[in-house]
Amino acid sequence: MKLGLNFVSVTLLLVLGGCSTAPSVGRGPASISSLGAPSKISQGQADDITIYAVGLVGTPYRYGGNTPDSGFDCSGLIGHVYQSRAGVASPRTVSKLQNWGQPVSSDNIRSGDLVLFAQSDVATHAGIYVGDGRFVHAPSTGGEVRLDRLSSKYWSSQKMAFRRP
């Protein structure tokens, strides 16, 4: 049986994510002082969220979009993934995601947590952390859902915080 590249990539990502260390991050739109955080989702659901989110890479960006057929903006992607894989409804805007769930320290992030980026302490973008210092997000008009590294030049220069629904 021939396995698709996407399945192999997701499997490799999950294996590597379990062995990785958390990236160093600065303070962001919400306090990240807690060492861990309770969650509405189990570890199994977090794994399902991660696999599904990575599988959506390549879906077109669309402002206001919240389905694979219509495309996604960043909060629409998060809402679709959490609802589909964990039955958990998320806020529909990035500004409301900023206070959703519990803050998580960068030392305790896990796959399925949210990563939020801020300017002037106001969240402006969000994605789903998938392990190994990577996150899935819907970045901008004309783009598509993609997998990026938190350590990239652009993202590492942003204020970021992590939250666990």
Rank of each mutant, 00 (worst) to 15 (best):
residue 124 T to E: 10
residue 138 A to C: 08
residue 11 T to H: 09
residue 66 N to F: 09
residue 153 K to L: 10
residue 4 G to D: 14
residue 72 F to K: 03
residue 146 R to S: 11
residue 144 E to V: 07
residue 74 C to K: 01
residue 133 G to M: 05
residue 88 V to G: 03
residue 51 I to M: 11
residue 56 L to T: 00
residue 68 P to G: 06
residue 125 H to C: 05
residue 148 D to K: 06
residue 73 D to E: 08
residue 76 G to W: 01
residue 17 G to T: 07
residue 158 Q to N: 11
residue 98 Q to A: 11
residue 109 I to G: 00
residue 131 G to N: 05
residue 109 I to A: 02
residue 68 P to S: 08
residue 40 K to T: 11
residue 33 S to E: 13
residue 129 Y to H: 05
residue 49 I to E: 01
residue 145 V to Q: 03
residue 60 P to D: 06
residue 46 A to Y: 08
residue 75 S to P: 07
residue 76 G to P: 04
residue 89 A to V: 14
residue 151 S to D: 15
residue 61 Y to L: 06
residue 46 A to K: 11
residue 129 Y to V: 08
residue 32 I to S: 13
residue 55 G to C: 03
residue 145 V to D: 05
residue 164 R to Q: 04
residue 51 I to W: 09
residue 99 N to F: 12
residue 145 V to L: 05
residue 164 R to D: 02
residue 143 G to Y: 07
residue 123 A to H: 01
residue 77 L to V: 04
residue 22 A to M: 06
residue 54 V to M: 08
residue 162 F to Y: 15
residue 94 V to L: 00
residue 65 G to P: 02
residue 121 D to P: 01
residue 33 S to V: 12
residue 37 A to K: 07
residue 65 G to D: 04
residue 63 Y to V: 09
residue 18 G to V: 11
residue 136 V to W: 03
residue 33 S to W: 11
residue 51 I to A: 15
residue 114 L to R: 05
residue 20 S to N: 08
residue 78 I to G: 00
residue 104 V to P: 01
residue 40 K to I: 08
residue 149 R to Y: 13
residue 113 D to I: 09
residue 119 Q to E: 15
residue 45 Q to M: 10
residue 36 G to R: 14
residue 105 S to M: 01
residue 36 G to Y: 13
residue 62 R to A: 13
residue 140 S to P: 01
residue 70 S to M: 09
residue 15 V to S: 08
residue 39 S to F: 01
residue 107 D to V: 06
residue 150 L to P: 00
residue 1 M to H: 12
residue 75 S to F: 02
residue 152 S to L: 05
residue 10 V to W: 00
residue 40 K to S: 13
residue 96 K to W: 08
residue 91 P to L: 11
residue 157 S to A: 15
residue 149 R to G: 08
residue 83 Q to F: 11
residue 130 V to M: 03
residue 150 L to G: 02
residue 5 L to Y: 10
residue 115 V to Y: 01
residue 29 P to V: 11
residue 71 G to L: 04
residue 159 K to V: 00
residue 109 I to Q: 06
residue 140 S to V: 09
residue 88 V to Y: 08
residue 48 D to A: 13
residue 129 Y to P: 00
residue 144 E to S: 13
residue 62 R to G: 04
residue 15 V to W: 11
residue 47 D to A: 11
residue 71 G to C: 06
residue 85 R to H: 02
residue 87 G to Q: 05
residue 76 G to I: 00
residue 30 A to D: 14
residue 106 S to R: 10
residue 111 S to L: 06
residue 84 S to D: 12
